[in-house]
């Protein structure tokens, strides 16, 4: 039985990386009486899968993981019990039982919405013009020494954008493609801005929404 869990990752835990966050959830589940299902084999693990890794330093209003349960549990109780052991900053905001389609949750991720807040001297029209270019290039640094860096055009992954001033800072609302293919990492937008000589003093990124393909 699969329960799809909606959770938030806030300011307090934004530097917890994806793997560390996954480990935190499994440890917290172990501290509850939630009837989790384990994988078979020598090294039994809690059956849990996450939708889309979140970059280090990025907060999120709405993310998902799928968890296998060995028996059905009341949803409110599930949410309350897990919330009682999670570190401050992680919060379960909802859950629902879903049909077990054997498809990974990751493969259902289609689009995402982000809000970027920039501390910059650049103006709204400047940023807007930058986003309206027909191509937005960014250099992806090589991971290994023998590899060379790669040029990536971010533009096709941006479905919609809006720029406005908020509290003396510039807010960019981005609607992007997401998932295992064509995933836009919003931190790369910051890097691309910096590459194009726009001075960014500081920034914040929040994932506002993750949009899944309906599985019916």
């Amino acid at each position: 039985m699969i329960i799809r869990v909606k959770y938030q990752k806030k300011e307090e835990v934004k530097y917890v990386g994806h793997l560390d966050a996954m480990r935190t959830f499994t440890r917290c589940l172990k501290r509850t009486n939630i009837p989790v299902e384990y994988t078979k084999g020598f090294n039994p693990r809690i059956q849990i899968s996450f939708a889309l890794p979140l970059g280090v330093g990025v907060t999120s209003d709405l993310d998902y993981f799928d968890l296998a349960l060995s028996e059905k549990m009341n949803i409110e109780m599930f949410v309350a019990e897990l919330n009682s052991v999670l570190p401050v900053g992680f919060k379960i905001v909802g859950a629902e039982y879903v049909e077990d389609t054997k498809k990974s949750l990751m493969s259902l991720v289609k689009e995402a919405k982000y809000k970027l807040i920039l501390d910059t001297k650049a103006s709204v029209p400047e940023i807007d013009a930058w986003l309206k270019q027909s191509e937005i290039w960014f250099t992806k640094e090589a991971k290994e020494k023998h590899q060379s860096s790669e040029q990536i055009n971010l533009k096709p992954m941006i479905l919609d954008d809006k720029v406005m001033e908020e509290n003396g800072k510039i807010a960019i609302y981005l609607h992007t493609t997401a998932g295992s293919a064509n995933n836009l990492n919003p931190q790369n937008v910051i890097k691309a801005l910096k590459e194009s000589k726009i001075v960014i003093e500081d920034y914040e990124i929040n994932r506002e929404e993750l949009i899944l393909t309906k599985t019916a």
Binding site: Y15, V16, D20, R31, G57, P87, V88, G89, D202
Partner: peptide
Amino acid sequence: MDKLLKQVEKPIRYTGGEINMCRK
């Protein structure tokens, strides 16, 4: 502070907030 953390390797070395951290 947050600005510094964005520039360092493994910022969670400095942020605390782990399971069972004592709050008073």
